[in-house]
Design a protein around this nucleic acid. Structure first.
Length: 565
RNA sequence: UGUCCCGUGGUGUAAUUGGCAACACGUCUGACUCUGGAUCAGAAGAGUCCAGGUUCGAGCCCUGGCGGGACAACCA
């Protein structure tokens, strides 16, 4: 269940909740509610899976039921233990607990095999020894019915013998399959004698070489639900057409009033990214990103490294709702969710990304002092810290303009501004190099304004962040932007999604100066660099040499004004 | 030339048994502020895909269109 910090907003209701309430009202399944999150361990989880995880575990929580974690591992050629481990880690990190209910479809291979034998004996399944292409053409198309396989009328005895031989490894891969005998003329393709077992002489990550036949998704999923006592099997829209088949197998299994029910919802689509595991794998394999946990990836592990918090992802999931409408969520909602959480929790610190040297000409040469700064104005309990000040400082290059436009409130020649928590300073001189590039600002400070306020009540229009040159920690900062520069990179029929990769999705700033507080920041530790954005320490940090990832910039109305011009 | 699903502001979701469309993000004002952040106040923005019908009354019900999506892997 979610670690409800009990300050999370009340969960929104959705159409699935309503259907469950209706089932409960009708007394179905003895009032039990049991869900499951069923990933295939063939890739890393992404934000779309987070929606499903929050939905499934959220339902269990809401109705006092249970939610299982079950790996749908019926295809040994694509699945790996590495993925199993990462998925468990990600679900846990998101704040959910499957307790003792960790399952694998492969746990049921024996039962599934027995069930298949039962169907064969009942004349409800048969072995087909035609090649894949033949079977496929016989299936027809969505608009044209299929026709029956010549193997369809084999006797149960004959089928039993053949199926056992399949299982015993006596046939080659692709030479035989087991099919359910349903209806080749069904308007639903999935009911046209679906393949339920195929021969794969592959080592399975859990059962090893025990099997050389493996069940298909449709033959494993509903049965797994049934055997686990799942009452509500929630999946995405593309499985809607599978539901009659899901129900057909349950019909063969059902022996009491208990019956799992499949309900479909729309998968998450986010602007400026992709959500297909296949395509994400492609980005990783081709080196367009630095692995599954690249902070630009929409994977859970990528978002974690980027600085997203479980709370923010859970709140996001709740905000987007659950429906059957196939839409596209604006990333700005995701960004809003992190800012909202980090604003309340992140340690504030001053960091200069694009340093411009400032010399306080009337400040004594060797003097230094410590000024008190608030750690988080949104949370007084986080206390205060000391920030060192000295004659030579760095400020943000963008905070100075030699010839400022009307609405630019920051530093300019002759103008006085406040250095946050420190002093009022006035710019007197601009030093440039031979190229006309500004290399240094010479300012004077008002000693009476120590702490940030002048006793005479004088006001300034801007407060700047700064850092003492000799005390600051030099750090590498990685600025991330959207991975793609198209809202729907995979939505173009004739253009490959990779054509839309944003060449500026990562900008590395090797020489930023951050106040000493962050010197030994631990990986994943969150900060707000005041006036700049939210950042967190990357795994690449070493003691004394932190590396920061920008999670998301602060809202910036000045930048917006500039853009709108 | 099929079956199934979907169609409410720019985006995402709401709207008790039918009762003159609400919330969030985004956008735009303004106030406040030692973060041009946060916060607060306010504004613009849909008449619910279309057309009929039932009804005193329909986003909700019915009919017919239109539009979008899913389904033809021995993937899940």
């Amino acid at each position: 269940m979610a670690n409800n910090d009990n300050n999370e907003p009340a969960k929104k209701s959705n159409f699935i909740h309503l259907q469950i309430e209706e089932d409960l009202k009708q007394g179905k399944n003895n009032g039990r509610v049991h869900t499951r999150f069923p990933p295939e361990p063939n890739g890393y989880l992404h934000i779309g899976h987070a929606k499903s995880i929050c939905l499934n575990f959220g339902i269990a929580e809401k109705f006092g039921g249970k939610c299982n974690l079950r790996f749908d591992d019926t295809n040994p050629t694509k699945e790996e233990m590495e993925y199993v481990d990462s998925i468990k880690e990600d679900v846990r990190w998101l704040g959910f607990d499957w307790e003792d209910r960790l399952f694998f479809a492969s746990d049921y291979f024996d039962k599934l095999y027995d069930f298949a034998i039962q169907l064969v004996k009942e004349g409800k399944a048969y072995v087909d020894d035609q090649d894949a292409e033949t079977i496929s053409t016989q299936k027809g198309t969505p608009t044209r019915p299929g026709y029956e396989s010549p193997c369809r009328n084999r006797t149960p005895e004959e089928n039993l013998e053949l199926f056992k031989k399949m299982a015993a490894g006596e046939f080659d891969e692709g030479s035989h399959v087991l099919r359910a005998k349903i209806d080749m003329a069904s308007p639903n393709m999935h009911m046209r004698d679906p393949i339920i077992y195929r021969i794969m002489k592959a080592k399975h990550h859990r059962t090893g070489d025990k099997w050389c036949i493996y069940p298909m998704y449709d033959f494993a999923h509903g049965q797994s639900d049934y055997w686990e006592g799942v009452t509500h099997s929630i999946c995405t829209l593309e499985f809607e057409v599978h539901r009659p088949l899901y129900n057909w197998f349950i019909d063969q299994l059902q022996e009491s009033d208990y019956r799992p029910r499949q309900i479909e919802f729309a998968r998450l689509n986010l602007t400026y990214t992709i959500m297909s595991k296949r395509r994400l794998l492609e980005l990783v394999k081709e080196g367009h990103v630095n692995g599954w946990d690249d902070p630009r990836m929409p994977t859970i592990t990528g978002l974690r490294r980027r600085g997203y918090t479980p709370e923010s992802i859970r709140n996001f999931s709740d905000r987007i709702g659950v429906t059957k409408v196939d839409g596209m969520i604006d990333v700005s909602l995701l960004e809003y969710s992190v800012r909202e959480h980090l604003n309340k929790t992140a340690q504030r610190v001053m960091g200069v990304l694009d340093p411009l040297k400032v010399v306080i000409t009337n400040y004594p040469e060797d003097q230094e002092e410590e000024l008190e700064a608030v750690n988080n104005p949104e949370d007084e309990s986080m206390g205060t810290r000391k920030v060192p000040f000295s004659k030579e400082l760095f400020i943000e290059r963008a905070d100075f303009m030699e010839d400022p436009p009307r609405k630019f409130f920051r530093l300019a020649p002759g103008r006085e501004v406040r250095l946050r928590y420190a002093y009022f300073v006035t710019c007197n001189e601009v030093v440039k190099d031979e190229n006309g590039e500004i290399t240094e600002l010479r300012c004077t400070y008002d000693p009476a304004s120590r702490g940030g306020n002048s006793p005479d009540g004088r006001k300034v229009k801007a407060t700047l962040h700064w850092v003492s040159a000799k005390h600051a920690v030099k750090a590498e900062v990685r600025l991330y932007d959207r991975l793609f520069n198209d809202e729907d990179p995979s939505g173009h029929k004739d253009v490959d999604f990779k054509e839309f990769l944003n060449p500026e999705s990562l900008r590395i700033l090797p020489e930023c100066y951050i106040e000493p507080f962050v010197k030994d920041a631990q990986p994943l530790e969150h900060f707000q660099f005041e006036r700049v954005g939210y950042f967190n320490a990357d795994y690449d940090s070493t003691p004394g040499n932190p590396v920061f990832n920008r999670t998301v910039p602060l809202r910036d109305s000045w930048a917006k004004m500039q853009k709108n011009k």
